[in-house]
């Protein structure tokens, strides 16, 4: 545990500081790739909180990303209000949706696979409803208007590549710090106690419903914030891309591969998964065979979880530890 933490702090600080300092020298491709890495590190931390800390396998996180994204986009394009106000509405809506799912699951004893399916069902239902709801643009989605030349990124929460890079880097740093703090905080211990043995934890007086619902709500609000940034980054929002099952899967692959329940796992996971998707995509294109990208990506996923049972980050820690001992 000691090595885990020390190594994490050193590597994490070096990574975040290095990426912040290196920003002016990055080319466009690297910058946009790292932007996605950091954004999915943030998404990963959000689902790590629900899945890794509290043990609730949620396969419907795209719902929260979509709610956050739609709230901000609708507030700004339909009502001309500040996107900050959109966040102020979208994050509580997502938190309420997360809390509602958590409450329903608890109230009706829905757990494990059934909880995952409950989350999928709610998310898919909302996706279909949004696809048929004209107010939110239906399947055609909503396109963001062109930026004015006098755009102030902090006012509109939109900007160039550098703005999104900085914002995603900030989120990834903040998310990692938040989870590091939560893990050591009282509530982090309560969550993990519930994850490892709910009956025992409740016997000791841990208020299971309250804390599980709280984890769902915080995780949902974090995902909504990421979703708003993702929608702005894309410049457009569709129900299929922002609320679909594909995004839900994309969100949870990183933390699971990186190491669920660890503070740095989701970051390491995103650093591997996002470039992996890009590489297999370009590889498939250069070979000229459609489908090669998903074959490569799928095989890489199977290989990684086959070789690294606990995830990437615990494997790295174990590797460093054995090096340390050998010296």
């Amino acid at each position: 545990m000691q090595v885990d933490r020390r190594l994490g702090w050193i590597a994490g600080a070096a990574l975040f500081a290095g990426c912040a300092i290196a920003a002016p020298w990055l080319d466009g491709f690297t910058m946009s790739l790292l932007t996605l890495v950091f954004l999915f590190a943030w998404f990963g931390q959000a689902s790590n909180l629900a899945m890794g800390f509290t043990g609730q396998l949620s396969l419907g996180h795209a719902l929260f990303a979509g709610l956050g994204g739609y709230a901000v986009v609708i507030i700004t394009t339909r009502y001309g209000l500040s996107p900050w106000f959109g966040l102020l509405i979208g994050m509580p809506i997502a938190a309420a949706a997360g809390a509602a799912i958590g409450w329903l699951a608890f109230r009706f004893g829905v757990r494990d696979v059934y909880f995952a399916l409950l989350a999928i069902a709610v998310a898919e239902m909302m996706r279909v409803i949004f696809s048929n709801w004209n107010f939110v643009g239906g399947t055609g989605g909503i396109f963001l208007p062109a930026l004015s030349p006098t755009n102030e990124p902090l006012r509109t929460l939109r900007g160039g590549a550098l703005f999104y890079y900085a914002a995603a880097l900030f989120l990834a740093t903040a998310g990692t710090a938040l989870l590091a703090w939560l893990r050591g905080a009282r509530i982090g211990y309560l969550w993990r106690a519930l994850r490892d043995d709910e009956a025992a934890a409740r016997a000791l007086g841990v208020r299971a419903p309250l804390h599980k619902i709280l984890a769902c709500a915080i995780s949902a609000a974090m995902t909504a914030l990421g979703g708003a940034l993702y929608a702005h980054l894309n410049g457009v929002i569709f129900p299929d891309s922002m609320m679909g099952m594909a995004l839900s899967i994309q969100i949870i692959i990183g933390p699971i591969l990186g190491g669920l329940g660890t503070v740095f796992g989701p970051l390491v996971g995103a650093l591997v998964v996002v470039p992996l998707g890009e590489i297999s995509g370009t590889l498939g294109q250069s070979l000229g065979i459609s489908g090669m990208n998903s074959i490569g990506y799928g095989l890489a996923l199977i290989l990684l979880i086959g070789l690294l049972p606990g995830g990437l980050w615990p494997a790295i820690v174990a590797g460093v530890q054995s090096l340390w001992r050998r010296r």
Binding site: I256, G291, G298
Partner: peptide, 30 residues
């Protein structure tokens, strides 16, 4: 080899299998 592993690991395994099957369909049939 994954029978005793936690649910979320099996989930990733099957997502990987699904991606490979879809990719094969795309590569062979367009």
């Amino acid at each position: 080899k994954f029978m005793a592993r936690p649910q979320h690991i099996q989930f990733i395994l099957f997502i990987g299998i699904a991606l490979v099957i879809t990719g094969l369909h795309l590569a062979i049939f367009g």
